[in-house]
Design a protein around this nucleic acid. Structure first.
Lengths: 220, 220
DNA sequence: GAAATAGTGTCTCTGAGACATTATCAA
DNA sequence: TTGATAATGTCTCAGAGACACTATTTC
């Protein structure tokens, strides 16, 4: 479809900032580019919009991620458009950056060496304007996490309240008081206790699951 | 630039949701389309990305708005991409919706009849998926206004605290307590008193101005 | 002085933060 | 019993909401 018009169009792509919690920190999953342009550099997974395959760019990002990772991310939202004739020196291009949150287990199931993980606050040089995309994604996550249950998307299906608190602390880069935190979470009714417990060398902890991202009316 | 590729590309456009405060309510500025497609319907001002004129899509929206209104909006931010083969039946298209906030005076200066104003909660049928764009813009403004000085962008350069409060009330659709509101604004140091006063039939009110959008750490 | 609106003061009560205490497991 | 962590309880204080009160203008 789309017969040629009498004026030029930009190349349209999508890129995903895949964030996860790893080693107690917010990290981004990068892969090494195996073809030009910017061959050899680290970059975000992405691809070109195909008008015959995709009903929308949301379809595009899901198709690209499914083909590269085998899964659809727990949480996915449109982030921001990056565009211009500077970002890829060959042509005027436009990329829609997406924010994706996934539990580490999903990424590890993809296979060894496919992704390289970096702390979001300590990035290497990236291809194109991908550093800006990561920065925008991190800012969005940190902001939204202060008034929503977004960080739940970084956890496995079942988790303890201590794990949840540690996730918030990693994302928000701040220590939280246990008692206050539990009061808040309790009041929101955003996580549901399961009938299972995590056992270990200490008192077993109740396992919870969550259903969907909930917005708070106040900051955490 | 951009030589033809061996696969089709979407048409790329931008659209602006121009919001203002009018008759004490949050309203959107629409214009009647004077050419196909959807001729005669009300829609958002927008245009096609020109690779030779625009360094980015942010440039595109500013160029389009400048040509249609003569001004650059007080506040402008990227909202969301709408895309697919359904939104314009002729082709697969992609539009980047922008959120723009302007004082009513700016829009009135454009000239009579160019724009038609509607309450954002009582819209007529719009062209393409422009209703969705307006809904997304309104949701964004209402959300951000609860923790920022965004509504300042809807006011003239100088305003009283009562006007500011009424603006918040219109945007947030809620009554606010005068004393609490002033405490909050005072503590934020987000508006600056001028040495002018608004005179009328009552006690003169201090006029304020604001410099930039400030984020609160708590909701209003 | 009356009317109108600007601007300030005060009381209460909720809820967050800090910290202490109790509970329940393994070794 | 001890060590470790889960889970809950309590005290205090800051701040939001409600509402009353004072101030300054025009007519």
């Amino acid at each position: 479809m789309n017969a040629p018009l009498n004026f030029p169009l930009p190349l349209v792509t999508v890129d995903a900032v895949l964030l996860t919690l790893r080693e107690g920190k917010l990290q981004v999953a990068l892969h090494r580019r195996d073809k030009a342009p910017e061959e050899g550099k680290l970059g975000l997974p992405g691809g070109v919009v195909h008008l015959d395959k995709d009903k929308s760019t949301d379809d595009t990002i899901r198709r690209v991620l499914l083909s590269k990772t085998g899964f659809t991310p727990r949480y996915l939202e449109q982030l921001q458009v990056f565009s211009g004739d500077q970002r890829d020196e060959r042509l005027w291009s436009l990329s829609i950056a997406y924010l994706a949150l996934v539990p580490l287990s999903d990424l590890e199931a993809v296979g060894e060496g496919v992704f390289h993980f970096y702390d979001v606050d300590n990035l290497p040089e990236l291809a194109f304007d991908h550093s800006q995309m990561v920065a925008a994604a991190v800012a969005r996550v940190r902001n939204k996490s202060s008034y929503s249950t977004l960080p739940c998307a970084l956890l496995p299906e079942k988790f303890t309240l201590t794990q949840l608190q540690q996730t918030y602390e990693a994302v928000l880069q701040t220590k939280l008081d246990k008692s206050s935190f539990r009061r808040k979470i309790e009041a929101l009714e955003c996580v549901i206790p399961t009938d299972e417990y995590q056992t270990g060398v200490q008192r077993p902890a109740q396992l919870y699951r969550f259903e969907q991202v909930v917005l708070f009316d106040k900051v955490l």
